[in-house]
């Protein structure tokens, strides 16, 4: 189940500048990553990925790794998936916030994702990379701001592709629920997954801060129970 696009138009700015910039920066960094030899790339991930055990021991790049890990990806499909979600959900969230405030919220969601991972899995030694924590924050914000929004979603029913419009509420809820069993498993049994499930939940949790970043008119609409 992949989101293709958000069917509603923007209200304030037609061009989501910061979302495009984030996609561009992430893409350029991945291209640069491809230019590095494998050992150096691994070293890059070790140094600038976010590792919970290093955070707890106050080693490594500390807060810098929180910021850098958000812009590192493990490969094309990792990046493509994340950027697709960022494009679909980020466009209107950015519209409701304005570019700079959207960037701050995005970084805040990334930091929240890192903190949640460190809290839940303090012994984890695998460096976490990817923008998915921050993007889950953006998805949560989308859910709060546009619960009635409709997401055109690619589905395969018996290998036949369909692209119905699904309510954002169900779409985000689905993605949230599927994070919970592996997150629980990693917490209870210490299983280390390649995917940062706790980061996703932590990023999602950051969506409660979205009212602090909304533009005044969007906030007034939100408070008046009128579509943002």
């Amino acid at each position: 189940m992949l989101p293709l696009n958000d069917t509603q138009p923007n209200r304030y700015n037609s061009v989501p500048l910061m979302t495009i910039c984030l996609i561009a920066v992430n893409t350029f960094i991945l291209i640069w990553e491809y230019s590095l030899p494998a050992p150096r790339l691994q070293r890059l991930f070790d140094l600038f990925g976010s590792t919970p055990s290093l955070i707890w021991n106050r080693q490594g790049a500390g807060m810098l790794s929180t910021l850098t890990s958000m812009f590192l990806h493990g490969g094309f499909f990792h990046l493509a998936g994340n950027m697709l979600f960022l494009w679909v959900f980020g466009r209107r969230v950015e519209d409701a916030c304005g570019s700079m405030r959207f960037l701050l919220f995005y970084l805040l969601a990334g930091a929240s994702a890192d903190l949640m991972t460190a809290l839940a899995l303090p012994q984890a030694t695998l460096p976490g990379i990817g923008a998915s924590g921050a993007i889950f924050g953006v998805m949560g914000a989308y859910l709060l701001l546009f619960p009635g929004g409709r997401i055109r979603t690619l589905w395969f029913i018996s290998f036949i592709p369909t692209w119905p419009q699904i309510r954002a509420f169900w779409f985000v809820l689905y993605y949230l629920i599927v994070q919970i069993p592996p997150a629980y498993n990693s917490y209870m049994n210490g299983v280390e997954y390649d995917v940062g499930y706790w980061a996703h939940l932590g990023g999602f949790f950051a969506c409660i801060f979205i009212p602090l970043f909304m533009r005044p008119e969007a906030f007034a609409r939100y408070m008046s129970n009128v579509p943002v």
């Binding site: 707890w56 106050r58 929180t66 970084l107 805040l108 890192d114 801060f209």
Partner: peptide, 14 residues
Amino acid sequence: PILYLLLLMVQVGL
């Protein structure tokens, strides 16, 4: 300030 606080918490190892 909330963003700064979160980053600071990461920096000081929670």
